[in-house]
């Protein structure tokens, strides 16, 4: 299958290893990955911070960039969530119904990685090998916006050598929330402290998730604590082989 990668601005700039892993994993599974030029950012940060007008050109750009492709994948639950639940809404609110329709069409073909693997490619065992103790944090937008359910866990359970341990209070937000982490830094930090406490309780050496943004937050906290626990994107574990 020919799959277009929506890399997301964060993964592109700060976490290319998550995006590279997505490419290598899909290629290993026999698919062709293309990288549509001209893509930048989905505009989620602008929308969620109250700048819908500024997000509008970014939505137009995104729709134009990805419109030619049948299947689009992004290694980010929250960016896919924005594409699926915000783009058409913002376009409509701006009175651009034509853009809203086109955005809806692109959204219908856009998948978060675990959705693509399980719902579209119908594969749960990707042949990965990762001999480490891992705990999985279901990010809020994967869980409650995209409703990916246990798809990431089903993929992880099939990884050879993995010691997958359940994260207590897993469904509670880590406290990232985009600009929430800056505007309400104290509350965000309090939420992060509890999330890190739960991660450390598991004794895992790796905390994984489907969103680089939440992992940047959790990983930044774990690094400050000098805890020795690493954060890795789900794609990086699924791409790992012996």
């Amino acid at each position: 299958m020919r799959i277009a990668l929506f890399v997301t601005c964060l993964a592109d700039t700060m976490f290319p290893q998550a995006a590279k892993a997505t490419v290598l994993l899909l290629e290993r599974l026999g698919h062709e990955v293309v990288f549509p030029p001209g893509q930048t950012c989905c505009g989620q940060m602008h929308i969620n911070t109250g700048y819908q007008q500024q997000a509008l050109p970014l939505i137009q750009r995104h729709v134009k960039t990805f419109q030619p492709y049948d299947v689009v994948v992004a290694p980010s639950g929250s960016c896919v969530g924005s594409v699926r639940h915000q783009h058409a809404m913002v376009a409509s609110a701006a009175g651009d119904e034509r853009l809203a329709l086109r955005a809806t069409a692109v959204a219908e073909r856009t998948y978060e990685l675990s959705e693509l693997l399980i719902d579209v490619l119908k594969i749960e065992d990707v042949g990965a090998y990762f001999p480490h103790r891992v705990t999985y944090h279901p990010t809020c937008h994967s869980l409650r916006v995209l409703r990916v359910g246990d798809k990431p866990l089903r993929l992880l359970r099939n990884v050879r050598g993995i010691d997958l341990v359940e994260l207590p209070a897993a469904e509670q937000c880590c406290g990232f929330g985009g600009t929430f982490a800056l505007k309400n830094a104290d509350t965000s930090t309090a939420m992060l402290a509890d999330k890190m406490g739960h991660v450390l309780e598991t004794g895992a050496s790796v905390c994984t998730a489907g969103d680089a943004s939440c992992l940047m937050h959790i990983g930044g906290g774990l690094s400050r604590l000098e805890s020795g626990v690493r954060t890795l994107h789900l794609a990086e574990i699924l791409a790992a082989t012996s």
């Binding site: 700060m14 290319p16 830094a185 930044g220 400050r224």
Partner: peptide, 22 residues
């Protein structure tokens, strides 16, 4: 306003190359 971040979290090391460079 970025001090709100670095008060309790480290920033990730920016990678040597971006995805699109790679």
């Amino acid at each position: 306003p970025l001090s709100g971040w670095t008060a309790s979290r480290d920033l990730p090391e920016p990678p040597a190359e971006t995805f699109r460079d790679w």
